[in-house]
Simulated assay, not measured.
Amino acid sequence: MGANTASPRDRPRRPAQRRERGMITAVRSRSMLTLAEVCEELSVSRSTFYDWRAKRRAPRCIKLPNGDLRIRRSDLDHWLDDCEDAACWRPRTT
């Protein structure tokens, strides 16, 4: 074989290209978090999050056509800031 001849093993395969596209998609979707990611970050159960959502105390959610929820990273950060601000103004009970 000559130096310029590529063997079949050296050629890029389709699955690798798909994985690469998936990685690009993953980078784009980091601004959108899954419910599991949000619950993990907040250290709460899924049922607690749904309770908060029913009481309108959860961060703003986007409901996808398949029924799954997504939360924008910016909405979660804003919600956390609001929670922090609210905690500062609450009178402490001892």
Rank of each mutant, 00 (worst) to 15 (best):
M1H: 04
M1S: 07
M1C: 06
G2C: 07
G2F: 13
A3C: 01
N4V: 13
A6C: 00
P8S: 02
P8H: 02
P8M: 01
R9E: 15
R11L: 11
R11N: 07
P12D: 06
R13I: 12
P15H: 15
R18N: 14
R19P: 00
E20N: 10
E20G: 04
E20S: 15
E20D: 12
E20T: 11
G22R: 08
G22A: 12
G22C: 08
M23E: 15
I24G: 09
I24Y: 11
T25Y: 09
A26G: 01
A26E: 09
R28G: 07
R28E: 08
R28S: 11
S29T: 10
R30V: 02
R30L: 09
R30F: 04
S31R: 14
M32T: 07
A36N: 08
A36E: 14
A36C: 00
E37M: 12
E37I: 03
V38L: 01
V38I: 02
V38G: 02
C39I: 01
E40V: 04
E41W: 09
E41A: 15
L42V: 12
S43Q: 13
V44S: 00
V44M: 06
S45K: 09
R46C: 02
S47C: 10
S47R: 07
S47G: 04
T48P: 00
T48W: 13
T48E: 13
F49T: 09
F49L: 15
Y50H: 15
Y50V: 06
Y50T: 05
D51V: 14
D51H: 12
W52E: 09
W52Q: 12
W52Y: 13
R53W: 00
R53A: 10
A54E: 12
A54M: 11
A54W: 09
K55P: 02
R56T: 14
A58P: 06
P59Y: 08
P59L: 11
R60G: 03
R60W: 03
C61L: 03
C61Q: 12
C61K: 02
K63D: 10
L64G: 02
P65F: 05
P65S: 06
P65Y: 06
N66P: 07
N66R: 11
N66V: 09
G67H: 02
G67P: 01
D68K: 10
D68P: 00
L69I: 06
L69A: 02
R70Q: 03
R70N: 09
R70V: 00
I71G: 03
R72P: 01
R72Q: 09
R72Y: 08
R73G: 00
R73C: 10
S74K: 15
S74D: 15
S74E: 15
D75R: 02
L76E: 04
L76T: 13
D77S: 11
D77W: 05
H78V: 12
H78M: 10
H78S: 14
W79P: 01
W79M: 14
L80R: 07
L80K: 04
L80T: 13
L80Q: 07
L80C: 03
D81E: 10
C83P: 01
E84S: 05
D85S: 11
A86E: 15
A87C: 04
A87H: 10
C88A: 13
W89F: 09
W89V: 04
R90C: 06
P91C: 05
P91F: 08
T93H: 05
